[in-house]
Nucleic acid binder design. Sequence first.
DNA 1: GATGAATGAGAATTCATTCAT
DNA 2: CATGAATGAATTCTCATTCAT
Lengths: 213, 213, 213, 213
Amino acid sequence: MLYMQTVHSEDEGGRRSFIEEARRRQIVAAAVTTIAEEGYARASFVRIAARASVSPGLITYHFRTKERLIRQVLEYVHTRLDRAMEGGPEPLTGFEDGLRRIVAGHVMYCSQHPEEMAARQEIIGAAAPPAVREWITENEASGRAELAGFLTEGQRHGEFRAFDPEVFTDTLFAALGSAPGRLRRRPAEEHEAYAQELARLFAAAATGRTPPW
Amino acid sequence: MLYMQTVHSEDEGGRRSFIEEARRRQIVAAAVTTIAEEGYARASFVRIAARASVSPGLITYHFRTKERLIRQVLEYVHTRLDRAMEGGPEPLTGFEDGLRRIVAGHVMYCSQHPEEMAARQEIIGAAAPPAVREWITENEASGRAELAGFLTEGQRHGEFRAFDPEVFTDTLFAALGSAPGRLRRRPAEEHEAYAQELARLFAAAATGRTPPW
Amino acid sequence: MLYMQTVHSEDEGGRRSFIEEARRRQIVAAAVTTIAEEGYARASFVRIAARASVSPGLITYHFRTKERLIRQVLEYVHTRLDRAMEGGPEPLTGFEDGLRRIVAGHVMYCSQHPEEMAARQEIIGAAAPPAVREWITENEASGRAELAGFLTEGQRHGEFRAFDPEVFTDTLFAALGSAPGRLRRRPAEEHEAYAQELARLFAAAATGRTPPW
Amino acid sequence: MLYMQTVHSEDEGGRRSFIEEARRRQIVAAAVTTIAEEGYARASFVRIAARASVSPGLITYHFRTKERLIRQVLEYVHTRLDRAMEGGPEPLTGFEDGLRRIVAGHVMYCSQHPEEMAARQEIIGAAAPPAVREWITENEASGRAELAGFLTEGQRHGEFRAFDPEVFTDTLFAALGSAPGRLRRRPAEEHEAYAQELARLFAAAATGRTPPW
DNA sequence: GATGAATGAGAATTCATTCAT
DNA sequence: CATGAATGAATTCTCATTCAT
């Protein structure tokens, strides 16, 4: 790609050089840490740049606007989260098992990547630029639809009781979203148990039975 | 009561005149509206003052710092919420009924006072000043303890299954916290049903049975 | 007017306090001097504020945006110019005399208020913000129409030869616009003669005769 | 010739390679286009480089500073303008004819090379760096002297009336400078007529007679 | 010769807070 | 009590220029 700075109109399309890719990753990582540790409100270019040992101008150079940087942070977190959620190798034994894996998988991911998830939550909570809010809404929509579909399917198979899938999805997303904050106040060795307990809670809510595990 | 009001820990101690109280209420109300409608990030003193038809200097005069004003906003919201949560006149028929009333009561309160609750959520999500974050944490503690106690009692009476009360509390708080946002995207006439459905979800999670109502 | 800073939506309508009016005048004056002496490109808020012995924030406080400040500068200059152009007491003896007065009057005004006119020219030449350019275009239009009308009238009365009034107007405006720059390079005692000579030039161009004065 | 090219006064002295000359021409051309289309204020190295499909660093490499690049742009424009002004093949029939050719020739050149002349005008109007302003002044001087000499000669031959050649020159330069802007607002087929009309205006001003053509 | 990543100074603007009135 | 003018630090973003490659 020729030159950067103010010009390249909108397209993220242009191929990026190796070194540029590396810098972008470094800055995104610094942003994640800054947001997670100091909060979104205090995550200015100056502070993010300081953490990356880089000049603030370089952030604009690579990302054009703050909104774009924040979007990259979210994309980075979601990409890694999605990859992690693709599920384990063992076959599902049923919908209850599926639900358990979703919940426990997400919680354990939060446990293993607390910064990323804390940053994500900070952004979602504070998300100043309207464009970012839109991005989040659109992006959540597909996840919500997928989960709602899964729940409905479970009801059709008689494994889940007759609840409202929308309300259930709302609640589950709220619970998973608050997970990073909750885990932070607990010792790491309890996280596994926390994940299982939360999975049991939603399994009971979905089936109307105490889960056998 | 789920939320506590600080007992004027670091307050200037002195009695407040009638007119001062009135001004403070007026400013807090303006802050609630501003935060709810424009978001925490845009709730500057100038904008809050404009809504209160008052000069920005007056806010500093009455509250010293922004952090103190925000704390007052939270106290105001929690006081009103607590008063509303003190429960209806009819006697509880059991713990499941108690849980139902907590959940549905909270949701309906969100439905009836969307501004207050939206402002509260904005602050909790965005709240930059660390002091406010601490205040929130400390303040939630008593509410959490109360709820955890209630759940434990329900388990002792055999009405609730053997879940971890802490995890359950976390989840319930997360769900109730997200209620204002969720309700905002639904027509008002569905709020009642939403409240009941959410109550059923947590009843099922707590009892391991599909609730009879 | 209550409070200022970020809020007051668009209206310049609100009454302005005496002290505010004074500050605005002071800042506009500082802007005129800065632009005239250092050029538009170097007339940053910091430099203008320094000349007014004021903080840069105060300019934003009183004018909201740079574009608005610049517009105020132009309005200030045009208001004073228009007042000066309203013409002397003696009755016109004809169209040639009218043209002479327009030209000489404008040049002498430039001579007496070199800063204002230099600033005006700087802004017209550089005028970065598109909104300012529009303001200028619209504002010039009426002046151009008036002059063109006067010329046409002079042709109808047989005092002026049959030139294209549009082209004549273009030329006259260009000449008058360059006057401040030209005068700056000449000693003040020659300005009067310069004005008369320029008037003679346009009189000859308009009548096709050497003017008798 | 009305405009002069500096004779590489402060130049690095050394001969320039063929490829270097080519690059310099390419960059100057890109600068002309950028300034003409986006305005001087938006003509940053990055944007000029983008138009030249070249890196911004290369501009500094070839021109050292922005001020030097801008000077090259002016020299480029003036060189081509001077070449064009050297006049047609037909012999002059007199001074009035000479004046006509100067005016009409310049206007038609503006019509045929609107970009170059628009860029020139942008720079003259906006040109921040004082060094450029000085260069312009010095550079115009020779052109002004030449024109003033021509006018004086015409007066000596009795073809022109007794006006002040300096004032006349000022006015003519102002009018010619504003030509690109004026032509831009008129359809191309009227440009020829505009040129003739402007020539007539100055002929009338110079001779004190309505021109016979 | 040429690149493009990087810098650092400077731009306009926002805002909590102060203080003379 | 209340005002609102004023400040100064902080914000994002732009840009000419430098320099290792």
